[in-house]
Each structure stands twice: as C-alpha cells, then as structure tokens.
Design a protein around this nucleic acid. Structure first.
Lengths: 191, 191
DNA sequence: CGATTAATGTTGACATTGTTATCATTATGC
DNA sequence: GCATAATGATAACAATGTCAACATTAATCG
C-alpha cells in the first residue's frame, strides 16, 4: 500500500504533470505556486528543491507545452501526407491546439523568451519548437531568394499565430471552415 | 498654489493617465493597483471610488489603448494616401504600435473580451477598435463573395497581429524591412 | 446663508501569494 | 552503520487585492 511517504519519489515530474493538467482545464495561464503544491499534496516550499522560483516552474511547463504542440502538429502533417496539404493541416493544427489548450498556448509564448530557441542553442533545447520553425522554413519554394523565403515562412507563421491569438482573446469566433479558408487561401489574398 | 487637497479633483482621469504612462515605460502588463495609487499620490482604496475592482481599471486602460492604436493606424493610413499603399501602411503601423507600446498592446488584447466590440454594442463603445475592423473589412475587393471577403479581411488582421505578438514574445526580431515585405507581399504568398 | 447628504479619501485589517530561513526526515555513499 | 547530501515541512516576511469603518470635502436644498 503506497502510504504517504515523507519523500515524494519524483516531485518535479509530478509537479509538471499536474501543472499541465491544471492548465488544460482552464482558460487563463495564472497557475499559482501554492495552488499547484496544494494539488500535488505537498508543501509550497518543497517545489523550491526542484525549481529555483515560480518563473522557472512555469518555463518548464511552457517547454513541455511547446513539445506537445510540435508533436501535435507533426502528426497532423503526416496524416495529411505532407506537401501543401500537409502544410495546411499543420497550420490548422496549430490553431486547433491553441483553441483546445488556451492556457498552455498562452503560457508557452509568455515564457518563450526564456526558452531561447532562436538565440543560439537550438540543439540543446531539443526538438521543442524547432519542428515548428523547420516546418515553416521548409514549406517555402526553394526556388525563391533567401530573403523572400524568409518572408514567406514568417508570413505563414504569423498568420496561424495571429489567428490563434485573436480567437483566444475572444476577438473572433472559432469557425473551422473560416479558419480553413484563411489558412488555405492562396489566390484571394491580394494585398 | 495648488496644495495637496483632500479631494484630488479628477482621480480616475489621473489614474488612467499615469497608468498609461507607467505601462508605456515597461514591457510586461502587470500594473499593480497599489503601485498605481502610490504613483498618483493617493491611497490604494481611493481607486475603488472610481473603479469597481482592478480588472475594471485595467479594462479602462485597455480601452484607451485601443483608441490610441486606432488613431495611430488611421493617421498612418491617411499619410500614405489610402488605397493599397494606405492599407500596407496601416498594417505596418499596427505592428509598430505594438513594438513601441508592448504593455499597452498586450493589456489591450488581454482585456479585449471585456470590451465587447464584436458582440453587440459597437456604437456604444465608440470608435475604439472599430476603425481597425472597418479598415480590415473595407480593404477587400468588393467584387468577391461575402465569405471570401471575410476570409481575406481576417487573413490581413491575423497576419499583422501574429507578427506583432511574435515580436513582442521575442520569437522574431524586429526588422522593419522584413515586416514590410511580409505585410506587403502579394504574389509570393503561395500557401 | 446653514445644515444635511452624497461624494470622495484614508486607515486598519484580512486572506492570499511568492519567497526565505530554519528545522525535520529520509536516502545515499564510504 | 554512520556522515552527509537530498528532500521535505513550518514559520515568518513583504506585497498584493479587497473590504469595513471612519474622515473630510463638495453639493443640495430649506
């Protein structure tokens, strides 16, 4: 019988897990340190043995969320069979993930500056948001100049990211078909 | 000589003004109620005579920010002389405003759900974010079907919004030319 | 006018939060 | 088996949003 022991076994893992669980079931990304500790069944200060402060805890959660988004997107792309259809599917998956996990999505980008993906150690960060970036970069026609490719990739990312943010902030309603047409459109988007 | 009087004259206005001032000079939108009161030179609870709670205060600030953004955008559009060039200018202005006022921009959209612009009383809200929406809607070719116009407008808004958010969250660096090429591009943007 | 009442500010208190210092318990390595 | 590191708990602190009770000024009306 697994009684309550003084040592938890693997707090940190438990904290991250129930932290993610809590964030999944709410809209705002305002997870409290004491709240989490309470939920895990441990004293608030115990968490300080595994994270230097609240910010580090949230950053760790954000990191996990980034991995989850990457995986979710990748699966969607594969399911659609790559190519243009695959890319559209990934764009839609990006928005879908945000809609289904608003708090995680928000937290992820609020702490994204801490997880420096762009600035340097891409390798050390692992596969985090890297897949996301690679995808965005890889989908642009290789025949274009480098700066145009860059702009094109950035355009695609900005589009789905803006869409996701506007939906989460209640500025536009979630409409799967509308989103699809926005993401997929190619000839309509003059200026 | 205007001595310190017991009654401030027009707190609320003063609170909103120095609140905006404070937010202008910082990156995160975490303005504290007590902090603001301290800055205005008034007791914390005095603010409760003018705002039901902190959330209402922040919402009022967000509302003001929305008006400022609208005006800023409008001016940019006029300066560029309307039309396609004007629209591009407005898109760039949207991003520029965000970059120059990160906290205000963030706050504005964090509280945007409270200021329901879309859901109902557009008229009562005044010119707030309305100009923004009208612009987005107005720039699409009138020859298109209604749903395609809608998608096109949404696409434009999402693009600049995503761009702004990604820059504020440190995911992409601010590069005026890159932004320009992203906003202005029209033929390159194949899915 | 002068007095009553509403408007606006202040003080003190409370619960909650992140954080630190100190102490308690368990696991680990020689 | 014991010293020591790892991990946990308690108590306390400062800061925050908020409320109740009280103070002061402005407005209203006879």
């Amino acid at each position: 019988m697994t009684q309550k022991k003084y040592h938890h076994g693997d707090l940190r893992a438990a904290a991250l897990e129930t932290g993610t669980e809590l964030l999944k079931s709410r809209d705002a990304d305002d997870l409290g340190l004491r709240e989490l500790a309470r939920e895990v069944g441990v004293s608030a200060t115990a968490l300080y043995r595994h994270f230097p402060d609240k910010d580090a805890l949230l950053t760790a959660l954000a990191y996990q969320a980034a991995e989850a988004l990457g995986e979710f997107q990748k699966q969607a792309g594969l399911r659609a069979g790559g190519g243009n259809a695959g890319f559209a599917a990934m764009g839609i998956a990006y928005v879908d993930f945000a809609v289904e996990n608003p708090a995680l999505f928000r937290l992820m980008f609020r702490k994204a500056a801490n997880i420096d993906v762009l600035s340097g150690d891409i390798e050390s960060v692992g596969s985090a948001i890297r897949g996301l970036r690679e995808t965005v970069a890889g989908l642009t026609p290789a025949t274009l100049g480098d700066d145009k490719r860059k702009a094109s990739a950035l355009r695609a990312w900005s589009l789905v990211h803006g869409l996701a943010c506007l939906i989460l902030d209640g500025q536009i309603e979630y409409d799967r078909e509308l989103i699809r047409s926005v993401v997929v459109s190619r000839s309509v988007l003059s200026s």
